[in-house]
């Protein structure tokens, strides 16, 4: 019995060491490089470039309809012949979700407006309740005649883990594969 208890402790130690190895490189390294800035106000909370860590994300209430975000953006350099894009980071890939370009002969260096978050939901090719909740890294870049900038922020699609089928499947998959992994530790 004591021997079995000791083996459990040794196994937990190995799991702890591997877990520490996994968690160590996960510190967020998001920032904005270049002379650009922007902000968005959602539900009375104003977000900006500082919302670049998983602990301090831009919170988007995806469960509610008709939420309006007031936004503004500006650059500090000549902004003619500009182009840029925005994408969601999934592993080593970035999935583009927006793109813009223009000649901007008036050299307009700032803009603002309102964005209905329902438009965001309509762009995603699945029903709103199937959109995976959680934290996403969103990266973007803007380039013009006078300079360029790029940056990353964290966006959290707020909602209950169990409110989407994918959330339930993820929890079930973690439990089942975790138990199966434990099964590999049994002697043949």
């Amino acid at each position: 019995m004591k021997d079995q208890f000791g083996r459990w402790w040794r196994m937990l130690t190995v799991i702890g060491i591997v877990g520490a190895f996994i968690v160590t490189p996960t510190a967020a390294q998001a920032a904005i490089e270049g002379d650009c800035t922007g902000s968005a106000t959602i539900d009375g909370v104003t977000y900006g470039p500082n919302n670049d860590t998983p602990a301090n994300p831009i919170v988007v209430p995806i469960d509610r309809d008709g939420v309006i975000a007031d936004w503004s953006a500006s650059v500090g350099f000549e902004n003619k012949n500009h182009h840029g894009e925005l994408g969601i980071v999934i592993g080593p890939w970035t999935i583009r979700i927006a793109k813009w370009e223009g000649s901007n002969e008036q050299d307009k260096r700032g803009n603002s407006g309102q964005y209905n978050l329902d438009d965001l939901k309509e762009q995603i090719p699945v029903p709103a309740n199937l959109i995976p909740r959680g934290i996403y890294e969103v990266s973007g870049s803007h380039e013009a005649s006078g300079g360029s900038c790029q940056g990353r922020v964290m966006v959290e699609l707020a909602g209950d883990l169990f409110s989407s089928p994918l959330g339930i499947a993820t929890v079930a998959g973690t439990v089942v594969t975790g138990l199966t992994l434990l099964g590999s530790a049994f002697r043949r």
Binding site: P54, P92, Y136, E137, M154, L161, G167, T170
Partner: peptide
């Protein structure tokens, strides 16, 4: 990712 702890970066995926 879904718990809002860490996004799907190269490190996690």
């Amino acid at each position: 990712q879904q718990l809002g702890v860490y996004p799907l970066t190269t490190a996690s995926v």
